[in-house]
């Protein structure tokens, strides 16, 4: 279970350039301004929001890459700020950046992360074989990742993130750059992880269809804030809309200029 409470983060871009000569003043961006949600086990929770809503920043704070200015994150009751390594051991993160090592085979890429999680070489290798079966990537396993397609890369990166069998899975826009078949395969894999193994899955996206098809619970994020949460049906009812796209626009851009929902 992942619990995020009143998370806040702001970035300060320091002033640059010489004084007087086209000096850029200091810029302050409040990236996350009160994100709040709970993702229970055995559920897929979608973090839905437009570009720049603060989704990636939130997920990076969950993965202990960024320190929040305010608020609290718990992973299975472990405070991320207090014990980041203990929390990371219970997390599998597929981040926005999912670079592989091109001179290593897919299996070596996966086993490397397993070893970094403190697994024995044998256990990590066995787990890589198991994940390859689950993710339907067995023929890829002993090929070098140089020249993999987007879908193949994503599967390898996902297997790498899941090598230590984490009870909580966080995915940042996992379907970016994937074709229809690869997207379907990913969805199928996530459902299986939820149903067969009871994982807590959080994934961020800006694509409505993804959420409609996959998510048990939706958290709508806009301007760094949680603006609504519930099931797809609940949210539609709350917004008084039948179409989920309209629901999303209504919820996410409610306080914006009326052009957002005028269509």
């Amino acid at each position: 279970m992942i619990r995020v409470q009143q998370l806040r983060k702001r970035f300060v871009q320091p002033a640059s350039g010489l004084p007087g000569l086209g000096r850029q003043p200091e810029r302050v961006v409040q990236a996350v301004d009160g994100v709040d949600f709970t993702a229970p086990d055995g559920r897929i929770t979608g973090l839905l929001g437009p570009n720049g809503a603060g989704k990636t920043t939130t997920l990076r704070m969950i993965a202990a890459l960024l320190k929040p200015d305010d608020g609290r994150i718990e992973v299975d009751g472990v405070d991320v700020a207090q014990a980041p390594e203990k929390a990371l051991a219970r997390l599998g993160v597929l981040s926005d950046a999912r670079g592989l090592y091109p001179r290593l085979t897919a299996r070596e890429n996966i086993v490397y992360y397993g070893r970094l999680h403190g697994m024995t070489a044998a256990a990590a290798a066995a787990r890589a074989t198991h994940l390859a079966r689950v993710l339907d990537m067995e023929p890829l396993l002993d090929r070098r990742t140089d020249g993999f397609s987007q879908g193949e890369r994503m599967k390898t990166a996902l297997a790498r993130a899941l090598v230590h069998n984490p009870p909580n899975i966080v995915l940042d826009e996992p379907t970016n750059g994937l074709d229809v078949l690869a997207t379907r395969a990913l969805r199928e894999a996530l459902r299986r992880l939820r149903d067969d193994e009871g994982k807590c899955i959080v994934f961020s996206t800006h694509i409505m269809q993804e959420v409609e098809r996959l998510c048990d619970h939706v958290v709508v994020v806009a301007h760094g804030r949680t603006v609504a949460d519930g099931t797809v049906a609940e949210l539609s009812r709350q917004a008084g809309q039948t179409d989920f796209e309209e629901t999303f626009v209504h919820l996410a851009f409610a306080n914006d200029t009326p052009t957002g929902s005028a269509r």
Binding site: L65, K86, L91, L94, R98, L116, H117, A157
Partner: peptide
């Protein structure tokens, strides 16, 4: 190289100092 490939961010998400 690790930054360019985008493999540094996932690497830092492993539980180690």
């Amino acid at each position: 190289g690790e930054r360019e490939r985008g493999s540094l961010e996932p690497l830092l998400m492993n539980p180690m100092p």
